[in-house]
Nucleic acid binder design. Sequence first.
DNA 1: AAATGCCGCAACCGCCCAGGG
DNA 2: TCCCTGGGCGGTTGCGGCATT
Length: 286
Amino acid sequence: MGRSPCCEKAHTNKGAWTRDEDQRLIDYIRTHGEGCWRSLPKAAGLLRCGKSCRLRWINYLRPDLKRGNFTEEEDQLIIKLHSLLGNKWSLIAARLPGRTDNEIKNYWNTHIKRKLLSRGIDPQTHRPLNQAADTDAVSNAPTELDFRNVPRVSNTKSTANPSLDFKFNDSQIKAKAESLEEGNSSSSGMTTDEEQQLQQQHKDKHPSDGQELNLELSIGISSFGRNSNSTAGVSTASSAESKPRLDNRKFHFPGQASICLCCQLGFQTSEICSNCQTTNGFNRYC
DNA sequence: AAATGCCGCAACCGCCCAGGG
DNA sequence: TCCCTGGGCGGTTGCGGCATT
């Protein structure tokens, strides 16, 4: 007894989308907003699976997508976030405004993986390749990318990196990372005190690294301060509003005004930098 | 100029989870 | 509490374009 198919496959198109199909989808979402993907194709006059429509919209047609090459800063951010979160592409994408999980995943597999390998770094463990083979080996050998400060969470089985002088083990940190999706950091396995302790330890070790990436983990949507701005004129009334899902565009940090991603990461100092201003005039908070 | 190989990316697939009845 | 459904996610595939021979 298998799952019922998400759509009637016999009468659906597959493969590349035509310009006409794109336009129909855009027009429909402009008028009705996102949501109820299953019924959308029929309503929009598309011979497509609902999931296919959703993917097409999210990965390609959404007006707030940033097209074009990844910057060096984005590269570094992806690497750092991957070292922290593993293959949680949606979480990584949530910290890269205008980028989709699919895009980042592809970029990782085609560019960054190779880049890291060429530097002798295992892309899964983020350790030097010779060390990755022997996880018990203790090495302080410097690498081009210094991840000493980044608690590592990956899908692969791993032992705690001895060079990480953190009180918290990987599972705790992973639990923390998973809690990001819940939009409420206090619901994670890590208490607020523990978080502060972790941050304090980091501060103590690196008192002057203000230029380094601030991997503040409270990136979930808080229950307050969620802004209901629509996406470039497109109503997003349904599911995105009703579920505590990650929204790629806005994060509000408890007790803080909206701070843009670049500023959080130390790339910028102003509250809303030009990097976070989209071409359609909307600010991307992170 | 044609054939072949490689690479990048869009799209699909299958699984999982949350919410509602 | 269970079942069904919708939606989301990560992994994989396959096609088209580009580079090389």
